[in-house]
Simulated assay, not measured.
Amino acid sequence: MKKLVSISLFLLLALSWKASGQIITSKEEAVEKGLYSYSEVPGSLDITSGSSGSQSSGTERSKKKKKHRSKKNESVNEPTTQPVTVAKKEIELDENDYGFVSDFSLENYTQIQIVNNAMDFEGVRYRTGGTTKDGMDCSGLVFTTFKIFDISLPRSSYEQAKVGEEIKLSEVKPGDLLFFKTNRRKKTINHVGLVTSVENGEILFIHSTLSLGVTISSMSEEYYTKSFAQANRILN
């Protein structure tokens, strides 16, 4: 069909030009004389007047369209030249990562793990002589926690106070032990707690009490300030 249309147009041009004394014998000749032009775009056909300068040929327009499409494709496929910035997440170890411990370092790793394990017992009820989650007393909490790390301590708070190095209260760090004399009549060490945090001068420690079981208290509380006896460092 397309070929038939092309032949018919060619004959029409030839007959019309013959009337003016010229005979067109081929499509090439018609193009040379400015009577016929074509486009490379399928379905596009252009018949011009004798003056070829009156409008752009189909071939030129086709080239422009191709050039336009080429630029469009280049803009779509153009690689990104802007640098990709990956935000670095700074890892900070604070009290949320290690219970109440905020001064983590490789040097005090064991102390931190001891504190973490002691914190697992928080909420366990008080039980005289107890050393498990079914119930434990103050020295039982300390004894069981250190035993997890194969560190053997005496069973009573009185005997535990004889182990390690005695230090000043102002020098304590997480993992150190605090000893108290809560019995006014005997006036001997009968209670022990494990330091969990030292923040802005406030010392927190975990211990087991008759009323609350395993809980956390502060050395700023008057009761513990008055009954404090000494502090010991088991691990250096």
Rank of each mutant, 00 (worst) to 15 (best):
K3S: 15
L4T: 14
S6Y: 07
F10Q: 07
L11R: 14
L13P: 06
L15M: 09
Q22D: 11
S26C: 09
S26F: 08
A30D: 04
A30K: 02
E32A: 14
K33Q: 11
G34N: 11
Y36T: 04
Y36Q: 11
Y36A: 12
S37R: 08
E40Y: 13
S44G: 03
D46F: 14
I47N: 05
I47S: 08
T48Y: 07
S52D: 01
G53T: 07
S54C: 12
S56E: 07
T59R: 11
E60V: 15
R61Y: 12
K63Y: 14
K64P: 03
K66M: 14
K66Y: 15
H68Q: 14
T80N: 12
A87Y: 09
A87D: 14
E92L: 10
E92K: 12
E92P: 05
N96T: 12
G99L: 04
L106D: 03
Y109D: 11
I114R: 00
N116E: 14
A118V: 04
E122G: 10
E122R: 15
V124D: 06
Y126D: 13
Y126G: 05
T132M: 09
D134A: 12
D134K: 11
D134I: 09
D134T: 14
C138A: 04
C138N: 00
S139V: 08
F143G: 05
F143V: 05
T145Q: 00
T145N: 00
I151S: 01
E159G: 08
Q160D: 06
V163T: 14
G164S: 01
K168H: 10
L169K: 09
E171K: 10
K173W: 02
L178Q: 04
F179H: 04
T182L: 13
R184T: 15
T188L: 08
T188F: 05
H191M: 07
G193Q: 00
V198H: 00
E199H: 07
E199T: 05
G201D: 08
E202N: 06
F205T: 00
L210T: 15
G213M: 01
T215Y: 05
S217F: 02
S218K: 02
S218I: 02
M219V: 05
E221A: 09
K226G: 06
A231R: 00
I234L: 10
N236V: 11
